[in-house]
């Protein structure tokens, strides 16, 4: 059985940093087409800063999953430029408030996902179908809810990550109505939303980090 504890949460952030760095050029290219072309660089910088702070021996060790997410939230808010910093930061900040415990149950994962979506919606004022991060996070939270009865908590995460990937793919034909891409209107169709793409990568990293514990 997988345990989603503090070590998992820290591995999640480290894996997310590695995977986003690997996808940096892809994210930048997507953002170059529909935005200002800095999403890959910004997310790489932000997640690297999160890893640096997790590795900082001067900082007190984290005792709850929520403490890891809060540290990530404040770091991303202050180091990622653009809209992504406040959006990811608010998502993780709200998620940290419902995960202030040493490990997460299946319902804990569901609560975390719901709080994250609420944070993104509150900050970005976007809803599903507007070619934003919400198109990855909303189906991910719904999939987590449907998988809540799974025997292994990793399966709840896996369901969320798969739904996020599908949701991100589904942004390709959409026309953006929020954010910088909305200035392009019809011309934004045909490109995957960079924020939805990075969201899928980060949620996939949560699964990888959980599987790492099994291996």
């Amino acid at each position: 059985m997988t345990v989603l504890d503090v070590a998992w949460a820290e591995r999640w952030m480290q894996t997310a940093a590695t995977d986003v760095r690997a996808a940096r050029d892809e994210l930048t290219e997507l953002d170059r087409r529909v935005g200002d072309g800095d999403h890959g660089v910004n997310m790489d910088r932000g997640l690297s800063a999160v890893v640096e702070r997790l590795d900082d021996p001067a900082l007190p060790p984290r005792e709850t999953v929520g403490q890891v997410l809060r540290l990530a939230a404040t770091t991303l808010m202050s180091t990622v430029g653009g809209a992504a910093g406040p959006l990811y930061g608010t998502a993780l900040l709200r998620a940290s408030k419902v995960t202030d415990r040493p490990d997460l149950s299946a319902s804990g994962v569901v609560s975390m996902m719901e709080a994250a979506v609420e944070g993104i919606v509150a900050r970005g004022h976007a809803s599903v179908g507007e070619k934003t991060m919400v198109d990855a996070w909303q189906p991910a939270a719904e999939a987590a809810e449907r998988a809540e009865d799974a025997e292994d908590v990793a399966d709840v995460l896996r369901a969320a990550a798969e739904a996020a990937a599908a949701g991100a793919e589904a942004t390709v034909p959409l026309v953006a109505t929020k954010g910088r891409a909305s200035y392009l209107a019809e011309r934004s169709a045909g490109t995957q939303d960079p924020g939805a793409r990075s969201s899928a990568i980060i949620l996939a990293a949560a699964v990888t980090a959980a599987e790492g514990r099994d291996a």
Partner: peptide, 8 residues
Amino acid sequence: SAVLTVES
């Protein structure tokens, strides 16, 4: 995103 930063 400047608005988002202030709100944060």
